[in-house]
Design a protein around this nucleic acid. Structure first.
Length: 438
RNA sequence: GGCCACGUGGCGGAGUGGUGACGCAGCGGACUGCAAAUCCGCGUACCCCGGUUCAAUUCCGGGCGUGGCCUCCA
């Protein structure tokens, strides 16, 4: 069974054949660091982490290069820094740090390379020069713009013609643009805005440029997989293609384009105006990171996902049981049906189906491949107000009461604990364990 | 307005031109002093209307609904 991936370029599933099996290369668009990452941001991070792990399994850990950037130059960053009265550097450093903490809690492996936009300004300027030389870009009033009419296949990823785009455009075209769809590669910065010296004056790069510059630097002109959220198909990825292919003699940028679906929260679009913006950080206060990860993988990555409290509870129920069942496995075994499900365009819900009736060895191996520790202890740290020693004493007292057939006292203790959110479980072997109730 | 996804049982969620995945919840049983946990067993579905077909939840067309993109966005 070979790996098959849904390619946005062709809108079909294709057999995955790497350019170089000794160096499988993947690029995923990372966060713009100006605020806490929300749960929607976590979806591509988790989904492509699973793909990263699967590729490492298939080709060997040392034969996969995964690049995920950090965007630390952006007008939203500038605005937020001004708002908070902090330096841009402080804001981006702090936010990047928070992002790393959050996704580490989700069981996400660090990528091979995590480049930052501000450290690749020279590469971006060089790329602009290549684009101008190739006739794909022009300077105008301190800006440099990409001339979309210079690339006949512009729109091939989004499957939209220039005419359609222009007809649907709702923004006023800037006067210095030759074509309303031309997009910015470089724009001027005033004294208060971060900027770098360039042949076109002091300025800063356009949003799309950094990904082209950094993917080219670390993965070469053509690499295997490019991933991101479905909203990035247009304009971001379309423009990345235009830039990279324009600068690289039309060599294709990436061979497989993968896009994850969006998520909703309790049936509604996540938006600031609805006040239902959920950050990873907030969720981690109430749920173990692995539960969030599990909840994300219960739905196929291309499907829309409704993020709900009920879903999280169900995820925790199943994951707790699995963790218990997989405990103490010495020799994990990857089962064929499970693997084949993942090979079929990362069908994690189907893969989990096989885990449900898998013996402990297969369960353990499956959980590990999906990025779960496989023997997660019950996370009691979420309720710091519970004193474990006291609970242990209460359990002992109840055991004594039961032995003396004083069931009224035994039940009283159990009820008291229950009122504090502690549920007792009498195991078959005569021991009693406890869990935190939700 | 233009382009594009999705619509499966109480809930979540795969998949398939013809035998009702799987999970959660629920119900019944075992176990238990009684429960919980655990184990065994059970039920209910394919948005609407046409079309193609011996046969459609699955293919095609239309409708409705939800969401995405077209402007910063995972």
């Amino acid at each position: 069974m070979t790996l098959r991936l849904h390619n946005t370029l062709s809108r079909t599933k294709e057999d995955f054949v790497p350019l170089d099996p000794a160096n499988v290369r993947m690029y995923v668009c990372g966060p713009t660091v100006y605020d806490f990452a929300h749960i929607g941001n976590a979806r591509p991070v988790i989904v492509f982490d699973v793909l990263f792990r699967l590729l490492r399994h298939l080709y060997g850990p040392e034969h996969v290069t995964y690049v995920r950037n950090i965007t630390d130059v952006d007008d939203k960053i500038n605005a937020r820094a001004a708002e908070e009265g902090v330096s841009i550097r402080d804001l981006t450093e702090r936010t990047a740090w928070q992002f790393h903490e959050d996704i580490a809690a989700l069981g996400v492996l660090p990528p091979t390379v995590e480049p930052r936009a501000t450290e690749h300004i020279a590469e971006m300027i060089a790329m602009i020069e290549q684009l101008i030389a190739a006739g794909h870009a022009y300077a105008a009033e301190g800006h440099v713009l990409y001339d979309v009419s210079s690339k006949p296949d512009y729109g091939k990823l989004a499957r939209r013609s220039l005419d359609e785009m222009i007809a649907g455009a709702r923004v006023d075209p800037a006067p210095y643009k030759k074509n309303p769809m031309d997009f910015v590669l470089w724009k001027p910065s005033d004294a208060a805005t971060p900027g770098w010296e360039s042949p076109w004056g002091r300025g800063r790069p356009g949003w799309h440029l950094e990904c082209s510059a950094m993917s080219g630097k670390y993965l070469g002109e053509t690499f295997d997989i490019h991933g991101g959220g479905i909203d990035l198909v247009f304009p971001h990825h379309e423009n990345e293609i235009a830039q990279s292919e324009g600068a690289h003699h039309d060599h294709p940028l990436a061979r497989y384009w993968l896009h994850n679906g969006h998520l909703q929260v309790e049936g509604a679009k996540m938006s600031k105006s609805l006040g239902n913006f959920v950050t990873i950080r907030e969720l981690l206060k109430d749920w173990p990171g692995e539960v969030l990860r599990f909840n994300m993988l219960r739905t196929h990555y291309r499907q829309p996902l409704d993020w709900t409290m009920a879903g999280l509870k169900e995820s925790e129920t199943v994951l707790d049981r699995w963790a218990k069942n997989a405990e103490g496995v010495i020799e994990p075994v990857l089962e064929k049906n499970f693997l084949n499900a993942l090979y079929d365009d990362l069908n994690t819900p189907l893969a989990m189906r096989y885990l449900h009736q898998a013996p402990a060895e297969e369960l353990s191996a499956g959980l590990t491949l999906l990025g779960f520790s496989g023997n997660r202890p019950m996370d009691k740290s979420l309720r710091s107000d519970i004193e474990e020693a006291w609970v242990t004493v209460q359990i002992a007292a109840r055991a004594a009461a039961k032995k003396a057939k004083n069931f009224a006292e035994a039940d009283r203790i159990r009820n008291e604990l229950d009122a504090k959110g502690i549920v007792l479980k009498d195991n078959k072997d005569g021991t009693t364990t406890w869990e935190v109730k939700r």
